[in-house]
Design a protein around this nucleic acid. Structure first.
Length: 396
DNA sequence: TAGACTGGCGCC
DNA sequence: AAACGGCGCCAGTCTA
């Protein structure tokens, strides 16, 4: 099946998911919004008195002036990024100067809660239907072949942090049903192992090991660092990007990358061959032949050309992953019974609402189809859990 | 007052 | 000038 045929056949499945919608606990979100609102007012007045005058905490330009002019924080020494109109006040940069003035932590706290209130707590309750259910709209026109979700976007519901977790917990099943969450384990790295044929990577997956832990051992770093490096590989790694994320120097980042590719030399070979072929063909293709045209790949500009190279690498993994889960969704739509509704897709995860009496049969079908819809050189593993809300599910 | 742009950030 | 891939949505700011 081509990616075009796949997308066409998936359309009616997506429309059904949109129509079902997912139930949310409206009064819980409204109550939480009030609490967070009070917290924001407190932080705001603290911030104003700390600086000595009122200002708009939501305005990056006002914050930049306060931090780097009024308070004279040395942006060069701290390694603060330049944006088009002023110096950066993004969270990653604020982390670098949080020890220099107490206002920085207040800004970070304010940002966290304001984001959750403005993007989720306040808008979502207004969007439910008469049954308390929320309906997204899936689009299928992304560069990578992934789905996107909008109005509201249900692919970026919070997960991290106490409040974030509470918001996710407001997504619930109707009485007599449970939510089933099925997510692919490290699918893009498995695809990388498959396409590259890298023997070390294949061995790690075939032995059922934790890929980030195994990478950590190979590199002699902690698991968190290894995980960031692994994601960097999928994104088309650069020493600058990795350095920025890990808060190390580009030189140190480059050493990590070199060490990584010493260990996974098959992957290094695969990536460089891919880039060579993209330079000739002007495009890359994923598992089902989904194309991405990459005009930047032969650009005179170093920056653009490097960008093209990263996109070329990333597209193979991202589009293949997108096609695998789409194939599974199509197959599942044919095999699941009326007591099991597919509600959400979040790139490598599916959320179902299943009648309590049907859970065992459905979980068996879901696992079987998701894990076997394509055959790779490494096993495809799906983790499945169930619960009455999206935050507190138990592994099955 | 509406739309475009910018910085920022939620998710994978 | 950025600064590691893919999205969508928010508030502030600028402009017509």
């Amino acid at each position: 099946m081509t990616s075009y045929e796949l997308d066409s056949q998936l359309e009616p499945v997506l429309r059904q998911m949109e129509d079902h919608g997912i139930k949310i606990d409206v009064s819980f979100l409204s109550n939480l919004s009030e609490k967070i609102g009070l917290k924001l007012l407190k932080i705001e007045s603290e911030a104003h008195s700390l600086i000595g005058h009122d200002f708009n905490l939501n305005s990056p330009s006002q914050l930049a002036k306060i931090l780097y002019k009024d308070l004279k924080i040395d942006s060069r020494q701290a390694g603060i990024k330049r944006k088009k109109t002023h110096l950066s006040t993004g969270a990653n940069d604020l982390e670098k100067i949080r020890h220099l003035h107490p206002i920085v932590d207040l800004i970070l706290k304010y940002r966290e809660f304001a984001k959750l209130k403005n993007t989720y707590l306040d808008p979502l309750p207004k969007l439910v239907d008469e049954n308390g259910r929320l309906h997204t709209h899936y689009a299928i026109d992304t560069a990578s072949g992934r789905l996107s979700s909008k109005s509201p976007n249900l692919q970026n519901i919070p997960k991290k942090g106490e409040t974030g977790n509470e918001i996710r917990g407001a997504f619930i099943s109707q009485p007599g049903y449970k939510l089933i969450v099925a997510d692919y384990s490290q699918i893009e790295l498995r695809i990388a192992a498959h396409f590259s044929g890298d023997t070390t990577m294949i061995k790690i997956f075939n032995e059922g090991k934790d890929i980030h832990g195994a990478t950590a051992e190979e590199l002699g770093v902690d698991r968190r660092t290894a995980k960031i490096v692994n994601f960097g590989i999928l994104y088309g790694i650069s020493s600058y990007g990795l350095a920025e994320t890990l808060k190390i120097t580009p030189e140190e980042a480059q050493m990590l990358i070199d060490k990584y590719f010493m260990t996974f030399s098959g992957l290094r070979e695969y990536i460089s061959k891919t880039i060579e072929s993209v330079k000739e063909q002007g495009l890359t293709v994923g598992l089902l032949g989904r194309e991405r045209i990459i005009p930047e790949i032969n650009s005179e500009s170093d920056r653009l050309r490097k960008f093209g190279e990263r996109v070329a690498v990333n597209h193979i993994f991202q589009s293949s992953s997108a096609d695998i889960i789409k194939l599974a969704m199509l197959e599942l739509s044919k095999k699941l019974d009326k007591d099991t509704k597919m509600l959400l897709q979040i790139h490598d995860e599916l959320v179902f609402e299943v009648k309590n009496t049907s859970i065992n049969e459905s979980v068996t079908i879901i696992r079987e189809i998701m894990e076997s819809v394509v055959k790779l050189k490494v096993p495809i593993i799906v983790n499945i859990s169930a619960g009455e809300d999206w935050s507190n599910t138990r592994e099955l």
